[in-house]
Design a binder for these strands. Structure first.
Length: 269
DNA sequence: ATGGTCCCCTGACCGC
DNA sequence: TGCGGTCAGGGGACCA
């Protein structure tokens, strides 16, 4: 479910509620996530003060007195704050009890991940991530040189988290539309200038999505349960058969790397 | 190394 | 109403 803009939306929402608060208790109801919840999670977190709420790619990091809590939401994960103790819903796998509220991790498909790390910046999961989309290390020249001789479709390239962190299936299609690049185009045959346009498009689409609180297609909600509004700004994702906002041609759908991919045959080449 | 395929899991939806 | 098939915002293991 959540890509960078959705995780950033959650991060911004959680930050003022969590920073400075102490985790008073931990309740684990289901340990079978993408990686099993560690048995020592409770002892690592209890009595710890939360000092920072950060994001790296699609990972959320909650900095504690000692170490960090590292959270990935997978396809269906969400975090929810509530001021009082409510009955846990089905798929509420983990609850952190604070002095004045509760933070619940909810994930029906259980592709998500919650773990404690003493040194998250050097954790193998984060270590392999490429630059943030706004970092100078993500630029046309790097993309150009990284793809020479490669046969991978540019759409699949954007999903490679080691190249740039945070882009998922929605924003890959949307960025390629803004850049005017056909998603199936072979990445090794794209000119440097076009990669510069693509980098700019990625940043614009992510900026705009964050500004609108992310994209809600089915069930994405922020930490208070509110949906995101970028769905209204989607140009191609999920719009198969509908007219392009720009040229009126019919939006088409193809499969690239087992994932649905959307594009406008008039605007993208 | 690269890129394609399959799998993890639950729920929603569609056609019969 | 029920049933089977398909698909979903992610990522990693495996294979040629």
């Amino acid at each position: 479910m959540p890509e960078l803009p959705e995780v950033e939306t959650i991060r911004r929402g959680l930050e003022p509620f969590l920073v400075g608060r102490v985790i008073e208790g931990v309740e684990i109801r289901e340990t079978r996530l993408r990686r099993p919840l560690s048995p020592d999670l409770s002892s690592r977190l209890t009595s710890q003060r939360m000092e920072r709420v950060e994001r790296r790619g699609k990972y959320l990091l909650i900095g504690l007195d000692a170490g960090s809590l590292l959270i990935h939401l997978g396809m269906s994960g969400s975090l929810r704050l509530s001021p009082r103790e409510t009955l846990p819903r089905v798929h509420d796998h983990l609850t952190l009890r604070l002095a004045d509220g509760f933070l619940r991790f909810h994930d029906p498909r259980r592709f998500g991940l919650v773990l404690w790390s003493a040194d998250p910046t050097h954790h193998p999961l984060l270590d392999r991530l490429g630059p943030e989309p706004w970092d100078s290390g993500f630029n046309g020249s790097t993309l150009y040189h990284a793809t020479r001789g490669r046969r991978l479709a540019v759409k699949a390239l954007l999903l490679d988290q080691t190249l740039v962190a945070g882009i998922g299936n929605i924003y890959a299609s949307e960025a390629l539309f803004l850049a005017g690049i056909h998603p199936a185009r072979v990445s090794g045959r794209i000119a440097e200038k076009r990669y510069e346009v693509l980098v700019d498009a990625v940043r614009r689409v992510l900026d705009q999505a964050i500004a609108q609180g992310g994209t809600t297609l089915r069930d994405f909600c922020d930490e208070q349960g509110r949906p995101g509004y970028f769905s209204q700004s989607l140009n191609v994702y999920g719009r198969t058969g509908e007219p392009c906002h720009h040229c009126e041609r019919t939006i088409r759908e193809v499969r690239i790397g087992q994932r649905s991919t959307f594009f406008c045959p008039g605007c993208q080449h």
